[in-house]
Amino acid sequence: MMQSIRQQPFRAAVLVLVWGWLVFLVLTPNMLVVGASVMTRDPANFISLPLNLDAYRQLFNPLYLEVFLHSLYMAAMTTLVCLLIGYPFAWALSRVEKRRQILLIFLLIVPFWTNSLVRTYALKLILATNGLLNSALMSLGVIDESAQLLYTEGAVIVGLVYLLLPFMILPLYSVFEDLRQDVLLASHDLGAGRFATFKNVIVPLTLPGVLAGVMLVLLPAMGLFFVPDILGGSRNLLVGNVIKNQFLDARNWPFGAAASIVLTLTMALLMFAHRLSKRRLGEEGA
């Protein structure tokens, strides 16, 4: 080791810096969260011994379970809506002439670069009781008095879809880009109708993209706590809001840590499914 440092001081310095940063700011903090989740809440030092699984047990407390299930439901609806909008969108996008596609993709990533808080706030301008949507509907005579759009479950889902839609579209677009036209023609030549081709050829081939999109949407849809804060009111909380409240307000670290571990495990599970689907596809293709 000493010899290699003397031989290649630059290499050694780079490796020490990179390893140091990642161990200090990624590995250690994550270990801390795992550790905190099995410790006991302590009002003075945040956490203390003895070790136990109380925090995980607390997750199944009916009060929190209800919040979690509601959050899961909203995240699932968000993902579903993103998929329903994004799937045909990515398909249509992949069939536009190449030259225009660059511009269209650019337009899709502009929102990704703009402040998500500001965009969520912009939705509030539209959905508010005397906001644009209500006044538009009233002047068209669709409704007589302004409807309550803001501070509802629907508003949270709309907000999440609005923020996360590009994350669904981009992986879907990349699988549709790889979808070769001759495969579809072959299916047609073999006598498959439009629906059969869609069900037996297109869906299986685009499945990795669907799962990647689901992964990129479902998890943030449980964590983006500022969306319900701005659009949802106090009854439509996400897991992210619970974690934030437990850490910053209630100072219940073990519980917050346990909740975030459950979130991380959900992600790991989804990534595993994604890998599996890709591998299966690879074997069939070979």
């Binding site: 990642l22 590995l27 903090p29 801390l32 943030p220 964590g223 992210g240 974690i243 979130l263």
Partner: peptide, 23 residues
Amino acid sequence: LNGMLFVVMMSPEIVLAISLLGL
């Protein structure tokens, strides 16, 4: 090393946030 970078990119922001606060 690759794995740690991947974890940072994929794990929900809020998980990264609380882990750093803890540290």
